[in-house]
């Protein structure tokens, strides 16, 4: 099998990817813009009219994006010191710690969501402990609120971010930190002038990888979010499973996709000056 004749190996892969991903998304876009024949299942031009008729869907989009951003931010705050700390310990310990970070996530997300559910339940373990401080009642709980959705999404984002931050931090030679110290930089200064700019590129990539699914999530909000926690993802999945209007659901999902990608793009642009030239490590 020479190199030249290898191309046929790629055929099954391309066949699946194109038909499952490229083709349908393309068709969705085309039909929704009225550029292709009306296929019964696909979005129609008037789907967009329906979407923009009221502000409802726009508000939901905004809420979903906001949820994605907040949960990503919370996850970054937790993941950063962890990823950095792991990069500074001996190699053997690193492997163990990284394995321990990934382990919970090999278990189904549903189970993790359920675990959160049990954890947060009224009169359950967490509230029983917190109520000991007499600040809140053991009966109450943040379950069935939007907050628990946000926390759950942040939790799901942790392993990716820890891994990514670990990878960027690993490449920062300790000598750079030492030399910054010898030049008089305090801990804060070392963080802002050295660590932050050098880990930023990796962090942004990881954040995008985490933000996008979070904004498009629906299971977490369905189980944990309660009536006020509905996100655009819930409405979309409803269209498919309950209401059986896949055309509209597809149109909404296109809106979600564009909204999410635009946000990611904008953030990438805004944060660029903070890390320019950092890819030269």
């Amino acid at each position: 099998m020479t190199t030249k004749r290898r191309w046929f190996l790629s055929l099954p892969g391309f066949a699946i990817l194109t038909s499952m991903l490229v083709l349908p998304l393309l068709l969705q876009v085309l039909t929704s813009l009225g550029l292709a024949k009306n296929l019964s299942e696909f979005p129609r031009a008037d789907s967009w009219r329906r979407i923009f008729e009221s502000t409802l869907y726009l508000r939901l989009l905004y809420k979903s994006i906001w949820t994605g951003l907040v949960s990503t931010a919370i996850a970054i705050v937790i993941a950063w010191p962890a990823g950095w700390a792991i990069s500074r310990v001996p190699k053997g310990t690193q492997k163990v710690l990284l394995g321990a970070v990934i382990l919970p996530y090999l278990v189904s997300t549903i189970l993790l969501i359920y675990g959160f559910f049990v954890l947060l339940a009224g009169n359950g373990p967490l509230m029983s402990v917190i109520s000991l401080t007499n600040l809140v009642n053991a009966d109450s709980s943040i379950l069935y609120t939007h907050t628990s959705t946000v926390l759950m999404l942040a939790y799901e984002a942790l392993p990716v971010l820890i891994l990514v931050i670990y990878a960027s931090s690993e490449s920062i030679d300790q000598a750079l930190i030492d030399s910054a110290r010898s030049l008089g930089a305090s801990r804060m200064q070392r963080f802002f002038h050295i660590i932050l700019p050098l880990t930023m590129p990796g962090l942004l990539g990881g954040s995008a990888l985490v933000f996008v699914p979070a904004a498009g999530s629906f299971v977490e909000s369905q189980i944990l979010g309660g009536p006020n926690g509905i996100l655009l993802g819930n409405v979309i999945s409803d269209q498919i499973r309950r209401i059986n209007d896949p055309a509209f659901g597809a149109a909404l999902s296109l809106m979600l996709l564009s909204g999410v990608l635009t946000t990611a793009f904008i953030f990438g642009r805004i944060l660029k000056p903070l890390y320019r030239r950092s890819n030269v490590v």
Binding site: A175, S186, V281
Partner: peptide, 20 residues
């Protein structure tokens, strides 16, 4: 601590900040 010692250090691998 090293930040407050009045000592300059030249490292073996230079340790120049790559993004500056």
């Amino acid at each position: 601590p090293p930040e407050h010692r009045d000592i300059g250090i030249v490292f073996q691998q230079y340790a120049l900040f790559p993004h500056l």
